[in-house]
């Protein structure tokens, strides 16, 4: 492989950290959700990088499964957000504190 595995993994680490930062800093629930998708994609990139480096297809098959889980998660999560918005008229996660304490 001409692309060094360390560089692929470093890009994956950067994307994952941006996702974590977004989850911590942003207040809009949908944008928090997008950052979770970004973290899933960073893990996918690490899987593909390892698959190419180790000449194994297992990582690629796992990425396929992660894609399906992400799709299921997005569908259910967005349905929950639509329901929350209908009840509370907001998606600001600072105001959604019903389950806090």
């Amino acid at each position: 492989m001409t692309i060094p595995i360390e560089h692929v993994l470093t890009l994956s680490a950067i994307l994952f950290t941006i996702g974590v930062t977004g989850v911590i800093l942003r207040r809009n629930a949908i944008i928090v959700f997008m950052n979770i998708e970004l973290m899933l994609n960073a893990v996918n990139l690490a899987f593909i990088g390892f698959a190419a480096s180790m000449q194994s297809m297992t990582g690629v098959v796992f990425v396929f499964f992660i894609l399906v889980v992400a799709a299921a998660e997005a569908v259910v999560g967005l349905a929950i957000m639509v329901e929350i918005f209908r009840n509370k008229q907001t998606l600001n996660i600072d105001e959604l504190n019903l389950l806090k304490w």
């Binding site: 360390e6 480096s53 180790m54 000449q55 194994s56 297809m57």
Partner: peptide, 19 residues
């Protein structure tokens, strides 16, 4: 993450048969 990813632990080399 960057420290771990740049250590020698990630360099296992080819272990599968899908070149």
């Amino acid at each position: 993450l960057i420290g771990v990813f740049n250590s020698s632990a990630v360099r296992t080399g080819p272990i599968g048969s899908y070149s």
